[in-house]
Computed example of a mutant assay.
Amino acid sequence: MPTLQVRDLPEDIYIKLNLVANQENRSLAQQTIVLLRESLGLPNNNKLRREAVIEKLSEKGYPNETHVNPVDVIREDRDR
């Protein structure tokens, strides 16, 4: 995977990026990638996948995704 190094990053951008990364429980590198993907109009595959799983669980009548047994969901997915 390529590496990108940014020189002379303004301090206000660094502070804001660090703040947002902490709020999202991400590293600076992860948050930077997410923001670059969003600004370039590229899909965030993990987010789309999670949304699809939650939607599928809702369609099956699960009241709340936090009450789903993850073992059952993984087994069902593997059986397909």
Rank of each mutant, 00 (worst) to 15 (best):
N46V: 05
L28E: 04
L57F: 02
V73E: 07
V20K: 05
V68T: 01
V53L: 11
R49I: 14
P70F: 00
K56R: 09
I74L: 08
K56M: 03
H67M: 09
E59K: 13
N18K: 15
D72G: 05
V71D: 00
N45H: 10
L36N: 07
Q31D: 08
H67K: 07
M1L: 12
G41W: 08
E51A: 09
E11Q: 15
L48A: 10
M1T: 14
P2D: 04
T66Y: 12
R26D: 00
L36F: 13
L48E: 14
R50E: 14
K60N: 00
R75I: 02
Q30N: 06
E55Y: 03
E65D: 03
A29L: 01
K56C: 05
H67V: 11
L17H: 06
D8L: 12
V20C: 02
V34Y: 14
S39M: 06
V73K: 01
N44T: 13
D12R: 15
E55R: 07
N45V: 10
Q5Y: 13
N44S: 14
K16M: 12
Q5P: 02
Y62T: 03
N25G: 03
K56S: 05
A21Q: 04
L28F: 09
D12H: 15
L9P: 09
N18D: 15
L28D: 01
S58C: 00
